[in-house]
Each structure stands twice: as structure tokens, then as C-alpha cells.
């Protein structure tokens, strides 16, 4: 297996509770993000993304506790985004157990925030999230949860963010988000060609074919999956099987393995 195309399961959380529905009917508490995250990880999700969509900052303290519990329950990477306003927010989330934080509006307001986080906590911990909508021949970046056009071009902002130290780019098509009409492949390809770091495609996945396209045609390194999973349109094992059939390298399920076996393999 070469480097695997990554599938990221994304949970929207407000005040410490999962907002969108879930197909897992046997969870003790379907609203508990930790239980749901662990379930997706056991199902084969390559990473977990928790997005804080709390409308007010009052909901934020619950996130720190939540991230700590989620990190303890997971053996795959955990990213956190939503409302990260500055260096202190990022550092607190990473300290609580997140492996990466994604920053969006705060980075648009003050691009040097990317450098401050990258220099002190490492580029691997900084994902710059870009919400972009088509405008003429290009795509314009929007801030404040996609509501305010900035006038910045998505490709040049991505390149600047990486130059400043972003380790990955989470790219959401505003036009496709929630439509299940497929990722904006032209946008994905344009940004993937503009940077050398991994691009995570987001917004519009409705089928396994859409996800395969993000990797094969869009040049994405990872795909963010939300409603397609939550609504039960497809499962991660099924999605991986279909991707593999199309020739996309995926991480296969790992069987049980003991410390004694690993020690023997390490000679």
C-alpha cells in the first residue's frame, strides 16, 4: 500500500453535543461525540474531525473537556476546528489532546496567526480551512462561516497560508456544501496544484464515486465526510471497498495484533 487516501469523519458539535443525526442506532448516547468518534474510528475512519459550531463562546469550555475525552478514546489522529480565534485557543485545544487545529476566519483577519502557531507548535498542528465560492474564472474566499466574501482568491490564499506554515489545507466548496452533488473538482484541483501540502476536499460528497473523484481527479490527499456518513448513505468499510476497486489506495482494516507479534516482527 502506498500512502493511503484518507477518509476524515467530521462531527458537528455544539455545547459538547453532536448536532446532526447518526445512523448508529445502538449507541448508548447518540449525542455524545466521544462515543460516535470512537465508533467511526473503529469503523475505519482514518482521522476524526470535531467541528465546534457553537453560536456563542459560552459553549466553548465544554469543548476542552470533550477533546480530552475524545483523545483518550481514540487511537487515530484528532483535529478540531470552529471558532479558534487566536494562539491561546489553538494551544489550549492541542494541549487538551487535539493533534491539529483548523483555523479559518481568524487567519483571514490576521494571517500571522498561522506563523505563530506553526513556529511554536509545529506546522503539522495547523490546518488552514478555506471556504471558497466560485466567482467568474476563479474562487473567492469567504470568512465568518462562509458568510462574508473577502476578495481573496482561493489559490493565492492557500499558497500564502502554506508559505506561512500551514501543514494542510481544508478546502470547502460553499457552492457544493450540503448538496451531495459531488465535490467541486476544479476548485480542488486548482488548490492542490497551487500547494505542496495535503489538501482535504470538503463539501458535496454524495456517493463513493464523488469521493473517488476527489482523489483521482481533484488531487486531494483526504476527503472530509459528514452527512454522507451521518445519514447512513454509505459506511466507511463499504466506501473503502469501492475506492479500492477503483484503484484508490486506502488503509485496510487492521486485524488483532499482540505486543509479542510486534516484538517478533521487529526482530
Amino acid at each position: 500500500m502506498p500512502l493511503a487516501a484518507r477518509l476524515l469523519a467530521c462531527l458537528d458539535v455544539t455545547d459538547g453535543r453532536v448536532v446532526k443525526g447518526t445512523r448508529f442506532v445502538d449507541l448508548v448516547d447518540a449525542g455524545d461525540p466521544v462515543e460516535l468518534a470512537a465508533r467511526y474510528a473503529a469503523d475505519g475512519a482514518d482521522e476524526i474531525v470535531i467541528l465546534d459550531i457553537s453560536a456563542t463562546r459560552e459553549g466553548r469550555p465544554a469543548m476542552i473537556d470533550l477533546i480530552g475525552r475524545a483523545a483518550a478514546a481514540l487511537d487515530v489522529p484528532l483535529s478540531v476546528g470552529g471558532g479558534v480565534a487566536g494562539y491561546d485557543d489553538a494551544a489550549r485545544l492541542l494541549d487538551a489532546g487535539a493533534d491539529k487545529v483548523s483555523i479559518n476566519t481568524a487567519a483571514l483577519r490576521d494571517p500571522s496567526l498561522i506563523e505563530r502557531i506553526a513556529e511554536r507548535l509545529g506546522s503539522q498542528s495547523v490546518i488552514v480551512a478555506i471556504d471558497a465560492a466560485r466567482a467568474g474564472d476563479g474562487w473567492i474566499v469567504h470568512g465568518t462561516s462562509g458568510t462574508q466574501a473577502t476578495g481573496r482568491d482561493a489559490r493565492s490564499w492557500a499558497a500564502e497560508a502554506v508559505e506561512r506554515g500551514a501543514g494542510e489545507v481544508l478546502l470547502t466548496s460553499i457552492d457544493r456544501d450540503g448538496t451531495r452533488a459531488g465535490y467541486d473538482l476544479e476548485l480542488t484541483r486548482a488548490v492542490a496544484d497551487a500547494v505542496r501540502v495535503p489538501v482535504i476536499a470538503s463539501g458535496g460528497a454524495g456517493s463513493a464515486a464523488d469521493v473517488a473523484d476527489a482523489f483521482m481527479r481533484g488531487g486531494a490527499s483526504a476527503a472530509l465526510l459528514a452527512s454522507i456518513l451521518h445519514l447512513g448513505l454509505i459506511t466507511i468499510p463499504r466506501l473503502k471497498a469501492e475506492l479500492a476497486a477503483w484503484g484508490v489506495a486506502v488503509r485496510p482494516p487492521a486485524g488483532p495484533i499482540t505486543p509479542q507479534q510486534v516484538a517478533a516482527w521487529l526482530g
Binding site: M1, P2, L3, A4, R6, D46, V76, P77, S123, Q124, G167, E168, R196, V197, P198, S221, A222, R251, P252, A254, I257, V262, W265, L266, G267
Partner: peptide, 28 residues
């Protein structure tokens, strides 16, 4: 060299005796 740097994600570790295991990497 790699097309994308840093090398981020799950990749196989080839071990002695033909064993392989998947592991998570982040490094430049």
C-alpha cells in the same frame, strides 16, 4: 522525492519476514 510534503497520513511499514503494518506519519 514525494509529490506532497510533508508526508502526512497512513502508510505501510514493511517489516522483516514480509510482515506489513499500517502506521500514521507526519514528517518533512
Amino acid at each position: 522525492g514525494p509529490r506532497i510534503v510533508p508526508h502526512v497520513g497512513w502508510n505501510a511499514v514493511e517489516l522483516a519476514g514480509g510482515h506489513r503494518a499500517d502506521a500514521y506519519f507526519v514528517h518533512g
